[in-house]
Nucleic acid binder design. Structure first.
Length: 604
RNA sequence: GGUCCCGUAGCUCAACCGGAUAGAGCAACUGCCUUCUAAGCAGUAGGUUGUGGGUUCGACUCCCGCCGGGAUCACCA
């Protein structure tokens, strides 16, 4: 975690003053490198003095010594210091930590509200986050899970940092691939419905999508054995010709086709809603591609009129982006129909039109579409849209299995609903074996198993830097010990248990407590760092920072808990302080887990 | 082939803008429940940060070459 802003303007200003008075020049911010003191040395913050030695003309040790002496006498936050090579370790006085503790006890908003910290404050913006973006021809899988969890968490982080955030979904509900499941159901489904089959709607539709593929393969193989080339066979399989016909009918608004489409998509949406509910994600608005795919043609005309685009002989329209390091890019087909990017140009325009003041549009989409989003942004920029710079592709890495990539055709896809069920079952087994929940009724217990299972899954996925590929091993499922969601949830439940026992001992604000033990101070420092973590997570769009933070806090609390008696009738001052410290710890754990969409249970 | 991303302990991941002896968890091994939740705590062991150069007081981090892996470059989305 960055520390340079942590001890607020005070410390940096003091350093600046020290350098000016001692060596007679003004430092730049970049030269003042503050970091957390490594555990093996004594201190809280460390100043790297190498940048100053040219001006001081003295050795690193001597320079550090001089700055340290200046700081202890000019800044009362600095209690003492020591020097190791070119590193000046500063010890922040306990009084500072205790003062912070009391202000947080009085008013927890000090922790949660960035407006309370001028040096951490981010000007609030009006943002939109698009995530999930499923196809309506098959159920959600592990890849979608990462997308959904990221999109939701990033939105929560941005909201917590003070932004106005709109979460949106863009459902890919039309097109030739959607027709595949429709056709297979119509011809082979015998009227099967989610009710009659007891299959979840999205799974039922997915079943017919797979069936289509099977029939298609059978037909092409047959044609190939009849002497046709593979390419020809794939073009001429009867079922292939039929879906093309179906898509034409759909686009022409054919009543029967539309009816079938609506019915089957309806099933899918019911299925998706259930999965979204289990994942705990939601949207302020859902866009449907069937309503947006025609948008964007006006922008194409505009680009043509401005000579940014050009028309080829066959009537197709292109933009030449070779000067920007990209290729020529098609923006409209020869027959005048939209391609993916046409639509995206249109929806971007629509969103900025619909949301006056919108500053940033964040697309949570896998990194295989990086090229697409670069091109999209570049085109909009060339079209003179001032908001084009506000487009941001939050490009996340794929989720790999031990066997390699997930391939739907090879049946190695990990289904989202199955995974959620398995993890929840596992959480239930382990929790029951612990036998700490006798007071819970069935409903509460079920809810808890779900919260724990999802805690494990969400933490596992979100703790990894979004940009990186990650590996998920379903066979080992998910650990519940160590650096995991349930470990942090457990710590929260543990604190709640302590608080239930000790709440009557708390009356004042522990003002009698004067000196901190090591573990107490460590915990307090981490609590103190919450706003800074929030700021960094928001600026970096990184749930991983919130995950890492919550883990650090949980570890520090368990250490503290192991070494100290919290509730002690015979030492009311100490108990009062430690109970209040526990309360603040529970608060930052609950908040940081909340940023990840993870519930912090009171018992487990 | 062009462009981009990745390579850290047996495994999964950290390491802030270039800072000190590269950190956690899992797996392995040792201890700790008569005391507030042992889903815990403490410890041992595990590394030439893919590789070779360069820049720097200082490189996992920046630059160049190589090796290995991935993505992308559709009148698909």
């Amino acid at each position: 975690m960055r520390n340079e802003t942590r001890f607020e303007p005070g410390l940096k200003d003091s350093i600046r003053r020290a350098v000016r008075e001692l060596y007679g020049y003004d430092t730049t911010d970049a030269e003042i490198s503050l970091q957390e003191t490594r555990r093996e040395f004594e201190g809280d913050v460390t100043l790297v003095v190498f940048p100053f030695i040219k001006k001081s003309g003295k050795s690193p040790e001597k320079t550090a010594q001089e700055i340290g002496t200046f700081l202890t006498s000019s800044n009362k936050q600095v209690g003492s210091f020591n020097v190791v090579k070119g590193f000046l370790n500063l010890l922040i006085d306990d009084a500072y930590w205790l003062e912070f503790f009391r202000s947080a006890v009085e008013d927890p908003a000090v922790l949660l509200d960035l407006r309370r910290h001028p040096h951490l404050f981010i000007p609030p913006g009006h943002l939109m986050v698009e995530y999930s973006s499923p196809n309506t021809n098959k159920p959600l899988h592990l890849g979608h899970i990462r997308n959904n969890l990221l999109g939701y968490s990033v939105s929560e982080i941005l909201k917590a940092a003070g932004h106005d955030v709109r979460k949106v979904n863009l459902v890919n509900d039309r097109g030739i691939h959607i027709c595949k499941s429709m056709l297979a159901w119509r011809d082979f489904g015998k009227g099967e419905t989610p009710e009659s089959s007891t299959l979840k709607g999205d799974h039922l539709v997915g079943k017919y999508y797979v069936l289509f593929d099977k029939k298609f393969k059978e037909q092409t193989e047959k044609l190939i054995s009849g002497g046709m080339s593979r390419e020809e066979a794939e073009k001429n399989a009867p079922i292939q010709l039929e879906i093309q016909e179906m898509l034409r009918k759909w686009e022409a608004g054919d009543v029967e086709t539309i009816r079938l489409w609506k019915m089957m998509n309806g099933w899918v949406y019911e299925g998706f809603d259930e999965t979204y509910r289990k994942l705990g994600v939601d949207f302020d608005k859902v866009y449907y591609e069937s309503q947006t795919y025609l948008l964007g043609k006006k922008l194409v005309e505009e680009g043509l009129a401005k000579n940014l685009f050009f028309k080829k002989e066959d009537g197709s329209i292109w933009i030449d982006l070779s000067d920007e390091g990209y290729d020529e890019k098609l923006v409209l087909r020869g027959d005048g129909t939209s391609v993916y990017i046409t639509q995206d140009l249109g929806t971007a325009q629509l969103r900025f039109d619909e949301n006056p003041g919108l500053e940033k549009l964040i697309f949570v989409v896998g990194n295989e579409q990086e090229y697409h989003f670069k091109v999209l942004k570049e085109i909009l920029r060339k079209l003179g849209r001032p908001w084009a710079d506000g487009l941001f592709h939050l490009s996340y890495g794929m989720v790999d299995l031990p066997s390699g990539k997930m391939k739907s055709r090879e049946g190695t896809v990990v289904d989202a609903d199955d995974l959620i069920a398995e993890i929840t079952d596992q959480a239930e087994m382990i929790t029951r074996a612990q036998g700490k929940l006798d007071a819970y009724d069935t409903f509460e217990a079920k809810q808890l198993y779900h919260d724990l299972g999802m805690g494990a899954l969400k933490y596992f996925i979100l703790k990894v830097d979004p940009r990186k590929r990650m590996l998920f091993n379903p066979a080992e499922s998910i650990d519940l010990n160590g650096n995991t969601g349930p470990f942090i949830q457990y710590t929260h439940a543990r604190i709640c248990s302590v608080l239930r026992k000790g709440s009557t001992l708390v009356r004042g604000n522990a003002s009698g407590y004067q000196s901190l033990t090591g573990p107490e101070k460590q915990l307090l420092k981490l609590i103190h760092a919450y706003p800074e973590m929030l700021r960094n997570a928001a600026l970096g769009l990184s749930p991983a920072l919130a995950a890492g933070y919550s883990y650090e806090v949980a570890k520090a609390y368990n250490h503290f808990y192991h070494d100290h008696i919290v509730v002690d009738e015979t030492a009311p001052d100490v108990s009062e302080f430690r109970i209040r410290l526990s309360r603040l710890t529970a608060l930052v754990i609950k908040e940081s887990l909340g940023l990840l969409g993870i519930v912090a249970p009171e018992r487990m």
